[in-house]
Amino acid sequence: MKTFSAPRVVRSFIWPQSHSCNNLLALISLRHQSSYRRTRSRLNIKPDPSFLPSKTEPHDHIIYNPPPSAPNVYHTPTIFLPKTDRRRQLHEEAAARNSRLSATSSSPPPELPPPVRPTYQKRYHLTQEDMEEMRRLRREDPIEWSANKLAKKFDTSSIFVAFVTEGIAKEKREQQKQVTEIVKSRWGVKRRTAREDRALRKERWGRDA
């Protein structure tokens, strides 16, 4: 405990207000014997029931309890199997058997997990006139009518705006490229390295999975 008293004094000297000092001290983690015991007892998790001695099996038996891991890509999902493949039929039989078992135990059918982004229905609400208007605005003042602004005005996505107004404001595109170049030229070593590393990591997403 003696070792921790010194920094407290220093910090109270730097920040003389007592309440801010207390707030800061609350953030510093102090490791006491009591917290160690608490952590240990919290990590002492009860093992999976399949590892405990079985009540139904009187003899030695095999316990199959694999660790959670990503599904194998060589196991084709049922929907991807061709119509003639025999595995499709086998999967259907297994699913029917499982549903019969779950029906006897009267549990509700499993729900789908929540989506990452809210699901939406495609709306085909823009007419030919709207698109002409979009192009006209973009052609007249590309600085003012950016893709995002047009998307907001016509209640659509900026990708759709890009499809519609493709190749109209080439100067704006070049200008934007130059601006980006200038901004990038001001980056220091650390930021440049970090951005490049991030791009490399992102490239590997499409390869490793």
Binding site: V73, Y74, H75, W205, R207, A209
Partner: peptide, 28 residues
């Protein structure tokens, strides 16, 4: 169709799509 893990939502989503595409292409 596929499942992926990652340290960001984007990474995990991309990996899941990659796993799904591999599941399609690697049918045997």
């Amino acid at each position: 169709l596929g499942e992926g893990a990652g340290s960001s939502l984007d990474e995990a989503r991309t990996c899941a799509a990659v796993a799904a595409l591999k599941g399609w292409y690697l049918y045997s």
